[in-house]
Amino acid sequence: MKDLGLEKFQDTVAGCLVRHKSIIDVLTKINETSARVNRAVSKSVTSCGCIQINAKKQQVPAEISLYELVSYMDTHVQGKLCDDCKEIIEQEIGNHLFYLAALCNILGLNMKDIICNENEKLSTLGIYNLS
Rank of each mutant, 00 (worst) to 15 (best):
C48N: 05
G49P: 02
G49M: 08
I51R: 04
Q52E: 13
Q52N: 11
N54P: 06
N54F: 04
N54Y: 03
N54E: 10
K56G: 11
K57C: 00
K57H: 00
E63D: 12
E63C: 03
I64T: 11
S65Y: 01
S65Q: 03
L66T: 00
Y67W: 00
E68R: 04
E68F: 01
L69T: 01
V70T: 09
V70M: 03
S71H: 08
S71G: 05
S71D: 13
Y72V: 00
Y72C: 07
M73A: 00
D74G: 03
D74L: 02
H76K: 15
H76C: 14
V77E: 10
V77S: 09
G79N: 09
G79Y: 01
G79P: 00
K80V: 12
K80L: 05
L81K: 05
C82K: 06
D83Y: 02
D84K: 12
D84G: 04
D84R: 12
C85V: 11
C85K: 03
C85A: 06
C85T: 08
K86L: 12
K86Y: 10
K86G: 06
K86I: 02
E87L: 11
E87Y: 10
E87R: 14
E87C: 09
E87H: 11
E87S: 13
I88P: 02
I89G: 04
E90G: 02
E90A: 10
Q91M: 12
E92L: 00
E92I: 05
E92M: 03
I93A: 09
I93N: 09
I93L: 14
G94W: 10
N95V: 06
N95Q: 14
H96D: 04
L97G: 06
L97A: 12
L97F: 13
F98G: 02
F98L: 11
F98S: 03
Y99L: 03
Y99V: 03
L100W: 11
L100G: 05
L100A: 08
A101R: 05
A102G: 05
A102E: 07
L103A: 15
L103G: 03
C104D: 12
N105R: 12
I106E: 10
L107Y: 09
L107W: 06
G108T: 10
G108Q: 08
G108F: 08
G108M: 11
L109Y: 14
N110W: 07
N110D: 15
N110A: 05
N110Q: 04
M111W: 07
K112N: 15
K112I: 08
K112Y: 09
K112Q: 15
I114R: 13
C116K: 15
N117E: 15
E118H: 12
E118C: 08
E118F: 10
K121E: 15
K121H: 14
K121A: 14
L122G: 13
S123C: 15
T124M: 11
L125V: 03
